[in-house]
Simulated scan of single mutants.
Amino acid sequence: MRTAAILGASGYTGAELVRLIATHPGLRIGALTADRKAGSEMRDVFPHLTHLDLPALTRIEDVDFARIDLVFCALPHATTQEVVAELPRDLKVVDLSADFRLEDPAVYERWYGHAHHALALQAEAVYGLTEFYRDRIAPARLVAGTGCNAATGMYAVLPLLADRVIDPDEIIIDLATGVSGAGRSPKEGSLYAEVAEGFHAYNVAAHRHLAEFDQEFSKAAGRSVTCTFTPHLAPQNRGILATVYVRGEAAEIHASLARRYAAEPFLHVLPMGRTPQTRHVRGSNHCHIGVVADRRAGRTMVFAALDNLVKGASGQALQNANLMLGLPETQGLDAAPLFP
């Protein structure tokens, strides 16, 4: 039995980690932190976890890391760099924030508006898109979880770039995401009255996950790739649906995706012409991918749906942690999606 600490356990991704680890046969929770709610019980912060026997929330500086094998950092962006820098070097770390996702510190500074504060750690961080980097993730000390929007688009596109079956200069990603992607902190734009009964684009041409697309698409294609990406806020709690428009033949695209993901336990390519739905992956670590030929010859639409809090964040983090700890990759992640 290995022991994990969750730093930032009072947020949505922290709570999801607790929920997933609760049924994990090889991992237990040894510490939970939440600075503003230190001293509280997890059941008081998240009543749906009342049935679990969990340690009380505490401050990071009060955790005995000598008893911990791996740390999940579910902290706000721009805070994790300094926290990880102070952790014991023998600890394995899975970061769910954006702090270590971008390999080039200059690119990070351009997109996030400040210099990177842990350059030595950035140099050793491994990008946490499990299905594409598992060989590097397994021996890593620090793994940087992907953005949830970024992961959704990458699952639809990366094999196609690697197999050269689409035009790298014609990739358009329209994506709709649930409100929980904005986190649990109170924000005017996340209020029920601001979100319900509406649908709108946000961070148009400026979303920070664009930097991840640029980084990973360019590596897959072996050349510079700049895509178009527009996120939309959907009036739902969970789920992401990406619609990707590409130039390429639908049959070749479907074959490429089916071949690449044939052995993957969580990535499922639907029969040609079928499209995925967020309700069919809700609460799970699964991602459904669909391919539909456009009415115009040589144009294709690729769809991907996943749960932003699970496969897009905490489930992916646990999948990576399993690899890092030498545990079966799917442990704690076998639950079927919740339906209806």
Rank of each mutant, 00 (worst) to 15 (best):
V93R: 00
M272E: 08
E212A: 13
L96V: 01
D307Y: 07
S284N: 11
G198F: 03
E249C: 07
D95G: 04
G312V: 04
G239I: 07
V291I: 02
K92I: 04
S256G: 09
H207S: 14
D135H: 10
N320P: 05
R295Q: 12
A78Q: 15
G326M: 10
F213Y: 15
A151V: 07
I172C: 14
P88F: 01
A120L: 14
L121W: 01
I171F: 04
F100W: 03
I171K: 02
N237H: 12
R223Y: 06
A123W: 09
R295F: 14
E252Y: 09
G178Y: 02
T50Q: 15
A234V: 03
L87I: 03
H209P: 03
G145N: 07
G11D: 06
H51W: 03
E86M: 12
E124H: 10
Y12H: 14
R260T: 04
A22K: 06
V204F: 14
G14I: 01
E16G: 09
S97D: 05
V225M: 01
F213L: 15
L161E: 03
V45T: 00
L121K: 04
D69W: 09
E41I: 00
P271C: 08
H200L: 07
T146K: 07
R59E: 15
E131A: 15
L102H: 05
G298K: 10
P25L: 12
G30T: 07
P76E: 00
L57G: 05
D64L: 09
N308D: 12
L7C: 00
S10A: 15
G14A: 05
W111L: 08
E170S: 13
K219T: 10
L119E: 15
N285G: 13
D104H: 14
R164M: 08
V165L: 03
V18C: 00
A335K: 12
G298R: 08
N322P: 13
Q316L: 11
I29T: 04
T13W: 05
A201V: 07
P186Q: 08
E170W: 10
E41R: 14
E16Y: 13
A293K: 01
I253E: 05
A242I: 02
Y202N: 09
H207Y: 11
K37C: 06
A38R: 05
H280R: 12
S190L: 14
P265Q: 02
V45Q: 06
A206C: 11
T226N: 13
G312I: 01
V244W: 00
I172Q: 13
I171S: 04
E170T: 08
R164N: 13
